[in-house]
Write a protein that binds this DNA or RNA. Structure first.
Length: 257
DNA sequence: ATGTCGATCTACGATCGA
């Protein structure tokens, strides 16, 4: 069973790229972020024609998250994190697919730091950590996948010194990621490739893709029972090189059925 | 400092967030 996460950067603007990748890789579960589409404009019909059921949490202009499931419908368990105000940004959705609970998240970018956007990012991560610890309690198989907007470590960024003061790499957010791991979650791609330089994002600016000046921002965190089933993990880099590509590439895990 | 996207409005260019 293959579970992937992909920040599409506009689900309608990138529909061709998304459908092509779905057809080629046939992932069983897909977490999408940055839909940039209101609830009514999610391309559910085209995605259904590709063979996927979907649940989504849209928002006009920005944010937006979705969970797709091949040949079945995800069973929605929540939209938004616990304790969020009703008018909160659309950054979290959760559903059960084939016996695995899938949390799909899009953490705030947080730049510029310091500032109100950075403060919002830290508050949002606090809410995520509270929910994450509750998810572990039952001992069920859970995958928390998405764009964390966190560079976990120096190996995850092409030039660490240039990113020292950026909201993606500040100690406060790296510590939030470490606290998730301390709760008992496993960073699947890093666990599978302990010393490899792996990126999931390349900026549109300054020919970042051509220079391979990337960052690793998209992560799949596994609860302990899922780690026991982990077979492989990786990144579909070639998707970043397609015409009209997102600035992110999909990251994925393969777990024993 | 650099300077690219998608979506949306300020609407055939400008803006915001990333």
């Amino acid at each position: 069973m293959r579970i992937a996460t992909f920040n599409v950067n506009g689900v309608n603007g990138r529909l061709e790229v998304l459908l092509r990748w779905l057809a080629e890789q046939e992932p069983d579960v897909v977490c999408l972020q940055e839909l940039k589409a209101p609830q009514a404009k999610f391309p559910a019909a085209a995605i259904a024609r590709a063979g996927y059921g979907a649940v989504w949490h849209g928002q006009s202009r920005w944010n937006g998250v979705a969970i797709l499931a091949r040949d079945t419908d995800p069973i929605l368990t929540r939209r938004g994190l616990p304790g969020e105000p009703e008018e909160e940004q659309a950054r979290y959705i959760e559903a059960a697919v084939r016996g695995v609970l899938i949390g799909c998240l899009y953490a705030p970018n947080g730049n510029p730091a310091p500032g109100p956007k950075f403060d919002y990012k830290l508050r949002w991560l606090d809410r995520l950590l509270s929910h994450a610890t509750n998810l572990l309690e039952a001992g069920a198989p859970v995958v928390l996948a998405g764009d964390y907007n966190i560079i976990p470590d120096e190996i995850d960024v092409h030039k660490p010194e240039r990113w020292r003061d950026d909201a993606l790499f500040r100690p406060e957010v790296r510590q939030a990621f470490e606290r998730l791991l301390a709760q008992g979650w496993t960073d699947a791609v890093r666990a599978r490739h302990p010393r490899e330089r792996i990126f999931t994002f390349w900026d549109y600016l300054r020919s970042a893709w051509q220079r391979d000046a990337g960052l690793r921002l998209d992560h799949l965190l596994l609860s302990p029972v899922v780690v026991d089933r982990l077979v492989d993990a990786g990144v579909d880099r070639e998707v970043r090189g397609l015409d009209r590509a997102s600035d992110h590439a999909p990251a994925w895990i393969e777990i024993a059925a």
